[in-house]
Each structure stands twice: as C-alpha cells, then as structure tokens.
Design a protein around this nucleic acid. Structure first.
Lengths: 225, 225
DNA sequence: TCACCGATGGTGGATTCCACCACGACACCT
DNA sequence: AGGTGTCGTGGTGGAATCCACCATCGGTGA
C-alpha cells in the first residue's frame, strides 16, 4: 500500500542487504528497490558465509535472502541471524513455492517469504510489510498453507517428514554430491551424513542409496534452484 | 518507465526478447540492457508457449532464454525457433553450469550459453558476441568443455559412442536399477555389469558411480522430448 | 594373419552402505 | 520435576559395491 505518511524525507534511508547467488536476481531486486526514495541497498553477498559477516558488520535494517544458496542452504544464515539478537528483519525469496521451505524459514526466524514467481510487483509490498513488523507471505502460498493446516493433510511427497538438516542433505545429494563431499562441505563426520541418509531413506520409504539418489535428483530438477 | 525514444544516435535499436519465468531475473536483464543505448528490450514472456507466439509475432533480433522454464524445458523453445528458419539469435541463460545442458542447447540451435552464476557483468559481452555471429560460452564452462574435448573424446553427450549393450545398461541405470538388479534382469554376472559401468564411465568422462547415476537419470528424463 | 573391439567374466583392495547403537540438547507434556 | 520424543551428532562391524587391472572369446576390418 502507499500509506507513507511518516515519510521523513530521504535523510535516513532504510538500509537493505541482498543475499542471493544469482547476480541477475540481485540486480533485479536492486532495480526495484531503487524506485523507492526511502529505501537503499547497502550491501550484497552471494554466499551465506560472507553474508553473515557482512550483515553483522554493516547492520542493515532488512536482509533479503534467497533460500537456495549454493553452500549452506540459507536456512542456516537465517538461524544464525535470528540468534544474533537484535539483527535485521529477514525477507526470504525463493524459487521454490514449497510450503516446505516457507514454514521452516519462518520458524527459523524469517519475517517474510516471497516466491520469485509470484512477485510481479509485490516485493516492495513484502518489504514494507516486513519493515512494519508484520509477517508477509506470498498470496498463493498463504492460501495453500492455510488450507493445508485446516485439512491437516501434509504429504506433498513425504518430504515434510524430513527435518531441516535432512532436507538440506537431501538437496545436496540431489546436486550430485557424494557422502564424503557433503561431510566436508558441512564440516561434519561422514558417519553423521550416513546417519542422516539412513533416516531420510526410512522416512521416504526408500530401499537403498540408489533410490535415494534418484529421488533426490528428480526432486531438485522439478523444483529448480 | 525508461521507454524513451532514443533514435537520436541509433536509428534502428537492436530488439531483444527476454524469456524467463522469474520476474526478478527478467528485470535484472532488462536493467543491464537498459545501460546500452543501442539495445532495447522489446518484449518479455514467462513460459515457452507464449514466448514462441510472441517471438514469432514481434521478430526480435535476439532472444534471451532460460533453460529451466516450468513447462516444456526451454529446449523445445530453442528447437522450435531454430526450426523456423530466419529466427532470432538465441542466448541461453541457466542456473546450471552443466556441460550437458549447454551442449544440448547449442546443438538445438542456441548461439550462446551463459551461467547465471558467472555473469558478473558478462551478459552484455555475451549479447554482443552472439549478435556478432559468434558462439558464446561462459568462461568456466568453455574451459571444461574444451578440456573434455581434448582429454577424452569429443561427444555430443558422448552417448553415441556407447555400444548397444552399454546404452541399454545406461538406460536401466537411469531408471533406478542397481547393478545387482540389472544383472538379474539381463541374466548376466554382476561383474559384467560392473565392467560395462566402468566402460561407460570412461567413455563419458565420469569419475564415480554417483556421477554416472546422476547423468543417467538426467538423460532418461530429458530424452522424453 | 594381426590388431582391435565388444561382451562376458574375474580378483583384490578400497570405499561406501547400512543396520544398530549411543549420547547430549532441546522441546513438549501432565 | 520427571518422562517422552525428536534432532543432530557420532561410532562399529559386516555386507555390498566400486574400481582398476586382467582374461577369454568371437567378430570385423586392415
């Protein structure tokens, strides 16, 4: 909405950080934000690690974060930031419209979740809402989440059953990463990854690692990053 | 917006169509193109079907196409356009840096392939190159493709240098069958299958069985078109 | 004939998988 | 406070698989 009554000129613009691994998306966001005189992009990052450092150093008012950052899933970034105490507001943008991620992100401390598909011009709306202290969700997504909550049905493909960690590992498997590589990337023991694999297999009713890999590859293709 | 008549220095601006299902990416591209006085975005589309109609109607000089369009994979779009005869140049942008996709796209008639990751500022470079009649590839991608061609064997996906047996087994792998299952189904020794796997890996320049499985799954998916 | 390749199969060592277990942290219930 | 559950992290040991060589046999082409 255009209820900008307390527009205190451009003396103190609201500072926004953008975290996305696609330069094009960053530029698209920046272009939109540039249309608003009281908003300003203060810094950008392409991966969660540098993003965390950057945000802690620059202390923006709002951070726009992509779910699917190449290493370390963005979920960790949101968790870390929300654990920081008086951190920025966090608006998550995603290529997935999965209720799956929205729920997790909000639980992890995000203040809004917008799908890249749905935002014809609604990012700004989302930004305003989040800055005002509200929780913002893409319209379609909000509806699906609501109807899902009513019917109690949660079975997209059984993936809801996976915990955050498990889902993250599932995603990495889908990208073609082997157990060893995942362990290295996440700084975890190989045994831990294997343990997670096993739990994932159990929850998804998969017999062997081959079926798991297959499922993961298929899924990451369908809901592309 | 910034659709001002710029015909002062350039009588005939080059007209570009953008096809991507993410509005943000479209805007990012448009923002970059807007910095060039002789280039102009003439139309946009979010899905392959409307894109095809649009491009045939508007006849742009260049079409920038995302691989990962929701329905119909963008590959079909490129094929259709290149089958049209005197169609536009086609530059493919992708979230994947997979050699696989690049190769298929180029063979389908695309004139360039850029990864969304790599393009810090190089889309314009790519656009220029493609318009000039060259074939453009992301630097990293070009390098990998080249080294692949030098080291091992040249190959469209390399699949045509598989023997009949190997191709058959490759397909079964793609369907999710394990080595043991394949052996049983073909009434062969497990060792034989493993031997074939090894040969396939060698011919396709794949390091481990995981990559093989991944490649096989991808292929059996994309070959539905 | 000879050299090569495709299909089949093997050996042995490295790697990975997998079932089962364990412990600490945290949440939720009553 | 206790009890129960799940989550994340690790481990062990045996089974399965992978993988780099190697071998045989039959066909095909120089």
């Amino acid at each position: 909405m255009s209820a900008m009554s307390e527009q205190t000129s451009v003396a103190q613009p609201i500072r926004i950080a953008i975290v996305d691994d696609h330069p094009l998306v960053r530029e698209g966001l920046a272009a939109r934000i540039a249309t608003q005189p009281d908003l300003r992009v203060c810094c950008e990052a392409a991966d969660p690690d540098s993003a965390l450092a950057m945000i802690r150093a620059r202390r923006p008012d709002l951070a726009i974060v992509d779910v699917a950052l190449k290493q370390g899933s963005g979920l960790d970034l949101v968790k870390a930031l929300s654990g920081d105490g008086n951190g920025p507001k966090m608006l998550v943008v995603s290529a997935y419209d999965e209720e799956l991620f929205a729920e997790r992100m909000l639980r992890a401390g995000a203040h809004g979740y917008v799908n890249k598909q749905e935002l014809h011009g609604s990012v700004l709306e989302a930004i305003r809402a989040v800055l005002a202290g509200e929780i913002y969700l893409s319209p379609g997504l909000a509806q699906r989440l609501a109807s899902q909550a009513v019917s109690g049905r949660r079975s997209a493909q059984g993936l809801e059953l996976l915990s955050d960690r498990e889902l993250q590992i599932f995603e990495l498997i889908g990208r073609g990463a082997g157990t060893r590589a995942i362990a290295a990337q996440l700084h975890l023991s190989v045994h831990t990854i294997e343990s997670h694999r096993e739990h994932i297999r159990a929850k998804l009713n998969l017999r062997n690692g081959t079926e798991l890999l297959r499922r993961a590859v298929l899924w990451t293709l369908e809901s592309r990053a």
